[in-house]
Design a protein around this nucleic acid. Structure first.
Lengths: 212, 212
DNA sequence: TCATCTTTGTGATTTTTTTGTCAAGCTTTG
DNA sequence: CAAAGCTTGACAAAAAAATCACAAAGATGA
């Protein structure tokens, strides 16, 4: 019955969602796969095939209703459901993420921030008090935490990951350069910012050689 | 002659590079595609094929010399060449990136930080003074800047991008939620952190349904 | 209302990516 | 130094992803 949808498609959904939000903002009511393809720089065919994985949102001769499509993709991504998150590691990156307003709009509610540094504990970020890691277990017993955002140093990442997994998080967003792998039934997304930068470097070198 | 190497392969290189760095750190001298495949969770066949795109670094019956391979991949990625970078936008994310020590190790040297906020201008991050955007043009005429890291609000992103492109950057690392597209010969990597989070949300929902 | 246009959804086709297989060749060991 | 054991590189096969192409159906406009 449920034909599995490929990750390639899933990873494009947030991008569709962003473009649709842009259209909504400028009050465009309908859009054809052709026009969207021009804006996004992908083929119309791919757009139609992607969207069709989730059901026929379009209408022949008309295209897609922007608002409907936006809501549908939001539903697929879980914006409606909402997820609670905590940040562990209130360093520079943790701080930046805690201040990122967009997450809330996309369905993610930050409900706790933890650190081990006594200078940080007790401070507030974006209205949320930084708690000591000692309080983590207690906190997670009193609150449902869907996602742990880990911005801790590499050398403790797996220890912290194991801990939050044991305490019942459903997903981990890992910002440490160390890849994470757990046995638990926990979904993991590893970020690796510098990988993107490295690819940028490669592409620059490549372009230079091509032009030379 | 030069058969083009696919992006799929390129995007895996930084990951190989990280794993090799780990091996070096624990003083492992040689590694077979088989063992590396077990550590990385991909097939040995893929590793051999990936590495072979750039030349035969391995040796039958022995495997790959970790140090050699590490250096070779570093060369491919441009670590040897090094790139100069500036950060535009000294907000939370700009601040976090400016403090990220790993970039230097990976071949990227931060040489300037710019902002428009008078409270930020004059402050130092990681030993670098935040300059006012007014100084950007002058700075870029006196210094070769390879990469501009843009952590500015969406509504000014394309303006800033155009500017740095005109002033000669070769690459842009874009952290604004708005996709960038320029006509110039400038390489662009869009980051979109929240897309990753959205995918995490999807995968959690998906797993829950599967288990239900 | 009818004819023309537009645009979707879908199956077929092509391209790309990943995986499997094995001869060739180096390493290791006694 | 010969035999046994590994492991690569290359090619073939399979799988996955992207693109093409078109019938079907609604939209538009006279």
């Amino acid at each position: 019955m449920g034909k599995k949808i490929s990750m390639a498609v899933i990873r494009r959904l947030p991008r569709y969602y962003r473009y649709l939000a842009d259209l909504l903002r400028v009050d465009i009511k309908r859009i054809s796969s052709k026009e969207l393809s021009e804006r996004m720089g992908i083929t119309a065919s791919q757009i139609r095939q992607d969207l069709n994985c989730f059901g026929g949102f379009g209408q022949q001769g008309y295209g897609y209703n922007v608002e409907t499509l936006y809501k549908e993709i939001g539903k697929i991504l879980g914006v409606e459901r909402r997820f609670t998150t905590i940040i562990i590691g209130a360093g520079n990156m943790g701080n930046a993420l805690a201040n990122y307003e967009n997450f809330r709009k996309r369905g993610f509610d930050l409900i706790g921030i933890f650190d081990i540094n006594p200078n940080r504990v007790g401070q507030y970020i974006n209205g949320i008090e930084i708690l000591h890691m000692d309080k983590l277990e207690d906190f997670m017993k009193k609150n449902v935490v869907d996602i742990a955002i880990l911005t801790v140093p590499s050398h403790i990442i797996s220890e912290v990951a194991e801990k939050v997994a044991d305490l019942g998080v459903k997903g981990i967003w890992n910002f440490s350069p160390q890849d994470l792998k757990l046995s638990h039934n926990v979904v993991i997304e590893n970020v690796h910012l510098s990988d993107g930068l490295a690819v940028l470097g490669y592409r620059i070198k490549d372009l230079e050689q091509e032009l030379a």
